[in-house]
């Protein structure tokens, strides 16, 4: 468990830097912004204490917030993601026995379920953050475009990151 947490910490360090220095500056077609750092939240061990997961998510969101001058926005969205993660997974996995390892991945869940889980959590996060972000703006259609655009963009990047992280692990073994 400790090893997993340390791994997650380094994953956050790298993805957080990528998010802050690159991701936040991208705005594809003025609507899609990638959120890559949530990958480490999605991959946190499922057996981890719920309260601890929320605390980690909140802190991670807060750190990203500090860098991008959006106090509380990412923190709230990350906390919601940490709560919604397991119910979302339960939508696709009916028996707990199907999960072979505490860390959700394409191996432990099966490729189809893992991709569904990844897409759903990304959509959840992007919807939450876009609607918090545009709280004061009346034009909800633009927010919806932004949420969907960001989801697609983030999902593609997260899928790529997933492949990189997993092949690294295999090589080490």
């Amino acid at each position: 468990m400790t090893k997993n947490l340390i791994q997650s910490f380094f994953l956050f360090l790298i993805l957080g830097l990528v998010q802050v220095l690159v991701g936040n500056n991208i705005s594809l077609f003025n609507i899609a912004t990638p959120f890559v750092f949530i990958y480490f939240l999605i991959r946190l061990p499922l057996t981890l204490n719920k309260n601890l997961t929320m605390a980690i998510a909140f802190l991670a969101g807060l750190i990203i917030d500090i860098f991008s001058d959006t106090q509380g926005m990412n923190a709230l969205a990350c906390t919601i993601l940490a709560v919604a993660r397991i119910p979302i997974l339960k939508l696709y996995v009916t028996h707990n026995d199907d999960i072979t390892s505490p860390i959700p991945s394409s191996k432990s869940l099966g490729v189809a379920v893992w991709l569904k889980y990844l897409l759903s959590t990304t959509l959840c996060y992007c919807l939450v953050i876009t609607f918090i972000e545009s709280f004061t703006i009346d034009n909800y259609l633009i927010s919806l475009y932004r949420a969907v655009g960001s989801t697609i963009f983030s999902f593609i990047l997260l899928f790529g990151i997933d492949i990189i992280v997993n092949t690294k692990n295999e090589k080490r073994l």
């Binding site: 909140f58 807060l62 926005m73 709230l76 906390t79 919601i80 709560v83």
Partner: peptide
């Protein structure tokens, strides 16, 4: 309660 606590802090920061 933990969730409410974190959500409250975030909203406080936000608003």
């Amino acid at each position: 309660f933990v969730f409410a606590f974190f959500a409250f802090i975030s909203c406080w920061l936000l608003f």
